[in-house]
Amino acid sequence: MNTQEATYKYALRLGDSALVLGHRLSELCSKGPILEEDLALTNISLDMIGRTQALLKYACELEMQGKTEDDLAYRRSENHYYNYLMTEQPNGDFAHTIARQLFISVFEYLFYTELEKSKDATLAAIATKTLKEIKYHMQHSVEWTIRLGDGTAESHKRMQTAINDLWMYTGEFFEMDHLDMFLLHQHIAVDTHPLKAKWQDYIKTALTEATLIMPIDSYMQTGSKKGIHSENLGHILSEMQYLQRAYPDAKW
């Protein structure tokens, strides 16, 4: 594996996480709890899909097979996706949607802040652009976590349940496989190990203010870096790829 091939895969992984979460959030379009929140969630979805486009486009350039970002998004099978398992978790109730966004946005904030310093100029530029959006996603999910946690007895209970349910998908954020290490040595990839303590600090502050209890690490789900997924991804892809599968090369 040379640097170019490794960077291709790295961009693909980041792009896939943005793509799958973007799709998940788009499922809420017209189904938000109130009009204002419907728009907020679909705006975040659009930010994610915009970031996907930039990352997958770059992946295509590195792959040099003449593919487009649409080919990558819509023409791969399940075990060739490398999104974090967290991103494919169902929207559930509003508390689950917010907890998922909180965990991811805080991680992405820390991650892309480091990626901005990458020696790969394209990845660094994408990081700079996306950070502005991530700061807003983070603020949005922190504020909601506080309001739901420190809200009514019912909202507190649901928020705590969501935090507990999704905790086992947070371990993956901080995994480093041989590809990450290879690119880290070339100052392209981000070292996620030191981010864990910072991430826990941010989450702990938010949860404390929300009067919620931070779960203790136990069994953590893993697999996405190898293309192993929960049953959720298949359902997402069957909907997301339907048009390309039913009408290949369809044009507007």
Binding site: L39, Q139, E143
Partner: peptide
């Protein structure tokens, strides 16, 4: 629900 969320919602809309 409050001023912070009002500002966020206004920004989004």
């Amino acid at each position: 629900s409050d001023e912070k969320m009002a500002l966020q919602n206004a920004r989004d809309i």
